[in-house]
Design a protein around this nucleic acid. Sequence first.
DNA 1: GCATAGTTCAAACGGACGTTTGAATGAGAG
DNA 2: CTCTCATTCAAACGTCCGTTTGAACTATGC
Lengths: 208, 208
Amino acid sequence: METPVESTRERLLNIAEQRFGEGGYEGTSLRAITVAAAANIAAVNYHFGSKEALLRAAVARAMAPVNTERRRRLDQLEAKGQPTAEQLIRAFIEPGLDLVLRRGERGPVAARFIGRVAFDPSQRIRELYAAESDPVEARYLTALQAALPRAAPESVAFGYVNMLGLLALHQSQALTRAPGTEDVEDPGKLAENLIAFLVAAFDRGLRA
Amino acid sequence: METPVESTRERLLNIAEQRFGEGGYEGTSLRAITVAAAANIAAVNYHFGSKEALLRAAVARAMAPVNTERRRRLDQLEAKGQPTAEQLIRAFIEPGLDLVLRRGERGPVAARFIGRVAFDPSQRIRELYAAESDPVEARYLTALQAALPRAAPESVAFGYVNMLGLLALHQSQALTRAPGTEDVEDPGKLAENLIAFLVAAFDRGLRA
DNA sequence: GCATAGTTCAAACGGACGTTTGAATGAGAG
DNA sequence: CTCTCATTCAAACGTCCGTTTGAACTATGC
């Protein structure tokens, strides 16, 4: 067994990840979280300080492995010279969607959580997500613009925003799909399909 | 002047559109809406019945012109035979983004509202949006599959989901304000850029 | 044994929430 | 003017919210 005992702090993060991913930040109460985590309501403020600090901690924990892997891949690519757009897109997307594929683990829950936070209606929450991912993401935008010298920089930035959006879309729909589109994809092929979709759009769908 | 007097009901719908689009459904209180609309708190339940019914009415009002125009365009295209993928994408995207361009009118507010509701964290709210748009959207999926016979139907459905997601993204402008990507796009060119992006992805980024 | 620091607990805080009530107000018809 | 009916209003309903309190428990070091 990998989990000998789960501390209250870990249980709170796990349940928060799940519930915030289902109902959003405003739509999820601390009481719902603490009941599901079998913890006292005061435990949140003891371990984290506030509801928003709990969210921040959960975002940081969920994003950390994704950011690490993205940095590692980008370092590796840049060490070999100028990467292609496809290499960059793959190095960006795959770490984000690897989570989705880890069925049985906490991966899909974390992926949905990340995707939902990235699209939260409140700008304050979205900025909280951006604060956790900005540094490495900005490097990808610059690298993409260098990889696509024939496209206008604003146009590459447009494509980059679309890439962020589509990744968050598929992360957040990892568990619950919209009616009518339930069986759209084999989850195992999701990353490859999304990468192919984006590569085609970046290579041929941007203004010169 | 186009607005002789605005009824309480209209003011509530207008303010609800604005506030729900800023803070989301759960993050926006009826009191905040009624204060901004200079209406009594009881007016919501008098005119609509409940908070959720107010949201439903606002969604229906905002979506109606978009759905009508999409239907009209699809009818017109299909009358001339099998439309191309680009024609279908254009006929789907442009009605949704026309709203964004109507600066000075209520268009951008309605667009943001629609985009946010489509991505609301709560599945119940997302289904409320889907209920208003499903019929005509489903026709577009079928037409796209017919226009792309060489691509697998699931693959076209995948692209279709991506199209819905990117449209909602740009309607809500959720990520275009991310740091470093503020001035990504001339709003006037947004529709053309998004269509070109999607056409390239549909034509060359889907599995056979 | 005692002391100590870390953690958990039941209970309560003030405030904001969506909703409901019943009376007051308004305009239009007869 | 009077009746009627739609609308608006202040006030209150009970419930849930995030947060705080201070005491109780637990484990470890001495």
